[in-house]
Computed example of a mutant assay.
Amino acid sequence: MTDQATSAAHFRALHERSEPFLLPNPWDAGTARLLTGLGFEALATTSMGVANMFGRTRASRQEILDNCRAIVDATPLPVNADLENGFADDPAGMAEMIEDAGAAGAVGMSIEDHTGDNRSPIYDFGLAVERVRAAVDAARALPVPPVLTARAENLLYGIHDLDDTIKRLQAFDAAGADVLYAPGLRTLDQMRAVVSSVGKPVNVVMGFADPSITLDQLAEIGVRRVSIGAALNRLALQSFIDGARQMRAGRFGFVPDILPVAELHRAFTRRQAD
């Protein structure tokens, strides 16, 4: 297993090169090993994927941390932890979540300004910035400081105000965040506006974006990191549901398309031998 300091240095270096890197999101040890075997350079957890594993719409704080540890243990690749809002409104609680994620082995951490309450979904600007500042301080105090990503969630919760989103990202940049992220950007023009407005690497999630956008186009506008959120998990569940519906109707047309057992064995055996 790669030690945490080496993994953190590698993850930070990925953000410093000129071309973007792909950051797929496994949801358990098995999918982490499959993605490792496919040659990705780093992985990120997905809180929605964790919740889906338990048949719920939200995972608990401990489930998020346990999932992070399971994925870290399953792969030599750097792992970025999706920490949602840290499961705390106050900055001190956010800082504690950063510490616990570091103890779980994460070398990257993403925090967001979504409150968890859809009646008032986004933290007030001042509190949002204070929370990022507290997270930055906690991250820098860890024995192995992680790459800290600050997310502005406006666009996912009906606040279609790109200027306010950029204002928040600029403030998170000034507060010390290492990476900036506004999920819900759909077009290249929106992405370009964000990238050109901040001084830190920008993550773009393609799970909400125009799917015709290519990695080369993202590179041209200066995006440094490209993730997919829970999209792979949702894709897997869609395939599961489609197959189950066929079976319920007494048909089995999906069988020729399933992954051969031998291929799965090769993938997992190769990972165990590394």
Results as ranks from 00 to 15, higher is better:
residue 175 A to Q: 10
residue 186 R to K: 15
residue 180 L to R: 02
residue 156 L to Y: 03
residue 194 V to Q: 02
residue 160 H to R: 15
residue 174 A to H: 11
residue 167 K to T: 14
residue 176 G to H: 09
residue 159 I to P: 00
residue 180 L to K: 04
residue 161 D to Q: 13
residue 156 L to E: 00
residue 174 A to C: 06
residue 171 A to Q: 12
residue 155 L to F: 09
residue 195 V to Y: 03
residue 175 A to G: 13
residue 182 A to H: 00
residue 191 M to H: 06
residue 184 G to M: 10
residue 162 L to V: 08
residue 154 N to H: 15
residue 166 I to H: 00
residue 184 G to Y: 08
residue 155 L to R: 14
residue 178 D to A: 09
residue 174 A to I: 06
residue 160 H to C: 11
residue 190 Q to C: 11
residue 179 V to F: 03
residue 195 V to M: 05
residue 190 Q to H: 11
residue 167 K to N: 15
residue 160 H to A: 15
residue 155 L to A: 08
residue 170 Q to M: 09
residue 182 A to L: 02
residue 174 A to K: 12
residue 172 F to N: 04
residue 189 D to Q: 14
residue 165 T to K: 07
residue 177 A to W: 01
residue 191 M to C: 09
residue 173 D to K: 01
residue 191 M to W: 06
residue 186 R to W: 09
residue 185 L to M: 15
residue 162 L to M: 09
residue 191 M to G: 07
residue 169 L to G: 06
residue 170 Q to Y: 07
residue 191 M to A: 12
residue 182 A to R: 00
residue 170 Q to F: 05
residue 188 L to N: 08
residue 182 A to K: 01
residue 175 A to D: 12
residue 185 L to Q: 09
residue 154 N to R: 12
residue 177 A to N: 07
residue 158 G to Q: 14
residue 183 P to N: 05
residue 157 Y to D: 05
residue 194 V to C: 03
residue 161 D to P: 00
residue 177 A to T: 04
residue 178 D to G: 06
residue 163 D to N: 14
residue 173 D to T: 08
residue 192 R to F: 07
residue 177 A to Y: 04
residue 175 A to M: 09
residue 168 R to T: 03
residue 164 D to I: 00
residue 164 D to N: 09
residue 179 V to S: 03
residue 176 G to E: 11
residue 187 T to L: 13
residue 160 H to I: 09
residue 171 A to C: 13
residue 194 V to R: 02
residue 160 H to E: 15
residue 178 D to L: 06
residue 192 R to D: 14
residue 169 L to R: 04
residue 168 R to L: 02
residue 194 V to K: 01
residue 181 Y to G: 00
residue 164 D to A: 07
residue 176 G to M: 10
residue 187 T to Q: 12
residue 175 A to N: 12
residue 168 R to W: 02
residue 178 D to I: 08
residue 189 D to L: 15
residue 186 R to I: 13
residue 166 I to F: 02
